[in-house]
């Protein structure tokens, strides 16, 4: 009996040592296989919890539907006006680009994904998406909602991908304050008492005035996040401890606590010829 017990412990020790010292590629393949196996169950459970949550919210919100309808109507009018303004701006922009003969124009391909789970240990701020390599998602791709930037993909398997949120201290984003053009690095502050995710922008030039309410977008530097994605707004501005820079607290625009559907952003580049063909066809001209 004692011999059997010793053999058991030796086998256990050997298995653990083997697992702990697995090569990175084998380890990531094993993790991906396990994730793939669990993904359908996670998807089903997240769908069920979402359905329960939405049912409760809809029951609660019956009284406010009339007010909500009025607000939506007003919002629709405002957005129609905005679209009209933007259409004329787009035409101007296209004409100017043609005149300046831009060599390339970058577009973005958005892959819609469902959020099927969150981090199960609480050490990181991550979410799991329902799409992976087979859907064109790869490592280090930006992830956003219609509101703004959410994070970047860090671990991708065939049909799932893990996203490190911008509220995690390990997620660093090269950013720019739109009003002044000041550059900095946005990183997460981790969880906040209020439950609202928060970030901070470090290394801002101390001579550039940054004000609460200023819009912060991705700078496009660093290669992971495309240029111009909205991150959030400046909340408070502080002097850096070193006195060489200033630091700003940022409130992310995207609600990181209630993510249901997100978009993975893939940068697409096409040359001047493609661009001209696209503009001519949209104007009704011959290609």
């Amino acid at each position: 009996m004692r011999d059997r017990s010793i053999v058991l412990w030796v086998v256990l020790g050997a298995v653990l040592l083997a697992v702990l010292n697995l090569p990175a590629s084998v380890s990531s393949q094993a993790k991906a296989a396990l994730r793939e196996g669990v993904a359908p169950l996670q998807g089903a459970l997240s769908g069920f919890t979402r359905w329960v949550g939405e049912s409760i919210r809809s029951v609660r919100g019956i009284g406010g539907l009339v007010r909500e309808n009025q607000q939506m109507s007003a919002e629709l009018v405002r957005l129609r006006n905005e679209v009209r303004d933007l259409q004329s701006l787009a035409q101007d922009n296209a004409a100017l680009r043609e005149q300046l003969q831009f060599s390339a124009q970058s577009g973005r391909r958005l892959t819609p994904c469902e959020v099927i789970a969150r981090d199960i240990t609480g050490w990181w701020q991550t979410i799991r998406l329902s799409k992976g390599v087979s859907d064109g998602v790869s490592m280090d791709m930006a992830v956003m909602t219609s509101d703004g930037l959410v994070g970047k993909t860090v671990d991708v398997s065939a049909r799932t991908s893990d996203v490190l949120l911008i509220s995690d201290a390990g997620c660093k984003v090269s950013a720019r304050v739109v009003r002044t053009g000041a550059f900095g690095v946005v990183s997460g502050n981790g969880p906040a008492r209020s439950g609202q995710a928060s970030c901070r922008m470090d290394f801002i030039n101390k001579n550039v005035p940054v004000l609460p309410g200023d819009e912060v977008v991705t700078s496009g530097l660093g290669g992971v996040f495309p240029k111009g994605l909205l991150i959030g707004y400046v909340d408070k501005v502080h002097k850096d401890e070193s006195g060489l820079f200033q630091r700003a607290d940022i409130i992310p625009k995207a609600d990181l606590g209630r993510l249901t559907y997100v978009f993975v952003v893939a940068e697409q580049s096409y040359g001047a010829d493609d661009y001209l063909m696209k503009t001519r066809s949209s104007e009704g001209g011959a290609p």
Partner: peptide, 17 residues
């Protein structure tokens, strides 16, 4: 342990240990 590690960013084997 393996499942917990696979479902987050912990290297494989830490939770099993």
């Amino acid at each position: 342990g393996l499942l917990q590690d696979a479902l987050c960013m912990i290297p494989l084997g830490y939770s099993s240990f």
